[in-house]
């Protein structure tokens, strides 16, 4: 607490100094500061996170179950072509999901093993930073959420996301949703969308759909990072986990056990 206060104060003076130098920036820096403090989740209640235990994904069915559960529940369309494609959770080979960790002699079974990828719900989400309307925003529990009513479709967030987690509705998705889930809305053409960590289910006390879909083998574990007794914290303190592109400082909330 005291460290954080000090750090904040130091940061405050740093920002103030830079503002003084740049002249006109004082108003903007104040905004930057307030936004920073509201974004910081460490001292607040929950911080939702996910651990992906890759060893437990064995058959194609293991992946499909999770993906289908998510995409069905959230009315994610299937266009059948990569140009219009929309996806919330999907797979990418290790060498593509972790391009900077790849090397020539890596075990073949790992190198091409499909890894589950989704929005990382970062602590420092660059997509939130760049959104000109706050249509994408970070909740206090760490979920990077979207307000589809407000999105103007500028796609700045897609350029800013270093994980390729965002999709855009290039055309009306409605005809391409096979089975509609009438409990959840669809999206309209011209807005960006992505995984929401099933915030609508969390509100009802349910785990995310993908996590529930693979509850038998516990390949996906979901929980509160701020609670030392949570399952995710226990796994992270006992097993070695990595995150995608940690060097960018986004602090992803999705961890991988390889």
């Amino acid at each position: 607490m005291s460290y954080e206060l000090k750090a904040n104060r130091r940061q405050f003076f740093k920002i103030l100094g830079i503002s003084a130098l740049s002249g006109a920036g004082s108003i903007s820096s104040l905004f930057a500061l307030t936004q920073h403090s509201s974004l910081s989740t460490h001292h607040l209640g929950k911080r939702w996170a996910m651990v992906v235990d890759m060893g437990k994904f064995k058959t194609e069915e293991d992946y499909k179950r999770c993906i289908d559960a998510c995409h069905h529940i959230h009315n994610v369309p299937d266009f059948g072509n990569p140009k219009d494609e929309i996806k919330w959770i999907w797979t990418a080979p290790y060498k593509n999901a972790f391009p900077e960790q790849e090397h020539e002699y890596i075990r073949d079974d790992i190198k091409n093993k499909p890894f589950m990828v989704l929005c990382n719900h970062c602590d420092n989400p660059s997509c939130v930073r760049v959104c000109p309307t706050k249509a994408t925003f970070k909740r206090q529990d760490g979920i990077v959420a979207m307000d589809y009513h407000r999105c103007i479709g500028c796609r700045f967030c897609m350029a800013a996301c270093p994980y390729g987690s965002r999709s855009f509705n290039w055309r009306d998705p409605q005809p391409f949703i096979k089975e509609k889930n009438i409990e959840y809305p669809m999206r309209t053409k011209g807005v960006v969308e992505k995984c929401n960590f099933c915030e609508e289910r969390l509100a009802e006390g349910l785990p995310p759909a993908c996590v529930e879909a693979c509850k038998d083998n516990k390949a996906l574990v979901f929980g509160d990072l701020n609670n030392p007794d949570s399952e995710v914290r226990k796994i992270l303190s006992s097993r070695y986990a990595i995150r995608r592109k940690p060097e960018l400082g986004t602090q992803p909330g999705v961890y991988y056990i390889v």
């Binding site: 669809m186 309209t188 053409k189």
Partner: peptide, 8 residues
Amino acid sequence: IYCWDCHI
């Protein structure tokens, strides 16, 4: 209204 663009 454009509610039904998204709401089923």
